[in-house]
Amino acid sequence: MCSIKKDKLIIGGRTLNSRLFIGSGKFPSKSIIPSVIESSESEVITMALRRVDLDSKEHNILNFIPKGIQLLPNTSGARTAEEAIRIARLARAMGCGDWVKIEVVRDNKYLLPDNMETIKATEVLAKEGFVVLPYMSPDLMDAKRLVDAGAATVMPLGSPIGSNRGIRTEEMIKIIIDEINIPIIVDAGIGKPSEAAFAMEMGADAVLVNTAIATAQDPVIMGRAFGMAVEAGRLAYEAKLGRVLNRAEASSPLTGFLGDKI
């Protein structure tokens, strides 16, 4: 059996073997999180700062995340750049590290990110030494502005957060993948392992999945399924997908068999 060497993802100076990022919300119990991390082989987990309760062992999400896993606090709940900046600074002060996922959302119906406020927050926090991973509505020019602002990655949404509707922004994400030279992480809306594999086949550098794993009947097995799908999709991208034709083409010659001529 051939041995295939995994290529690695580098963000903020950290080398990652897994290209699956997971979330920590919506699980039936926090106690299942270590098993999901193990089954999925994910090395990065995002979390809302409100889940970090240093005074409560039972409710503090940090007590359920194994050592060595990269923490990715998010600024969930922020409506402006200023609020996102304040949340990021609080997370750092509470010992959650320098990585931060910027989420600035003022739309309460569709929960779509405010790109302008996200760019503002990214610029400030990047200058303060944060490794900034901004969640954004897929737009090429805003992605370029995030790069200029110092973002470590760009995280375009696949469909509205928590919807499990899959990748509905495929064409815009493809453009961003083609034009942006920092890691692209597809975030939000991925509902099936096949959709995660598709994102990787497109050339995304990673995906972030929460709801699809946390709300599955068996989150541990689903975590494993997503881990395998992400790896398969990345291998397919590295191998370069075969051509697509509008007509049939035989894989073996149709002539010369038992003297037949076609």
Score class of each variant (00 low, 15 high):
residue 120 K to Y: 07
residue 120 K to P: 07
residue 121 A to Y: 02
residue 121 A to W: 01
residue 122 T to R: 07
residue 122 T to Y: 13
residue 124 V to T: 13
residue 124 V to F: 04
residue 126 A to T: 12
residue 126 A to Y: 12
residue 127 K to D: 12
residue 127 K to G: 09
residue 129 G to D: 09
residue 129 G to I: 11
residue 129 G to W: 07
residue 130 F to E: 10
residue 130 F to Q: 12
residue 130 F to M: 10
residue 130 F to L: 09
residue 131 V to R: 06
residue 131 V to W: 01
residue 132 V to S: 11
residue 132 V to A: 11
residue 135 Y to H: 13
residue 135 Y to N: 11
residue 135 Y to L: 12
residue 137 S to L: 13
residue 137 S to D: 03
residue 138 P to N: 07
residue 138 P to G: 08
residue 140 L to K: 05
residue 140 L to S: 06
residue 141 M to R: 13
residue 142 D to R: 04
residue 145 R to A: 15
residue 149 A to Y: 00
residue 150 G to E: 02
residue 150 G to C: 02
residue 151 A to I: 03
residue 153 T to A: 15
residue 156 P to L: 01
residue 158 G to E: 08
residue 159 S to N: 00
residue 159 S to K: 00
residue 161 I to P: 00
residue 164 N to E: 09
residue 164 N to K: 15
residue 166 G to L: 06
residue 166 G to I: 11
residue 166 G to W: 03
residue 167 I to K: 06
residue 171 E to S: 15
residue 171 E to A: 14
residue 173 I to Y: 03
residue 174 K to C: 08
residue 177 I to F: 07
residue 177 I to P: 01
residue 178 D to L: 05
residue 178 D to H: 10
residue 180 I to N: 05
residue 181 N to A: 04
residue 181 N to S: 12
residue 182 I to Y: 14
residue 184 I to K: 02
residue 185 I to G: 06
residue 186 V to D: 04
residue 187 D to L: 09
residue 191 G to L: 07
residue 195 E to R: 09
residue 195 E to T: 04
residue 195 E to I: 04
residue 196 A to C: 03
residue 197 A to I: 03
residue 200 M to R: 08
residue 200 M to D: 08
residue 201 E to Q: 14
residue 203 G to F: 10
residue 204 A to H: 13
residue 206 A to D: 09
residue 208 L to W: 05
residue 210 N to F: 03
residue 210 N to R: 07
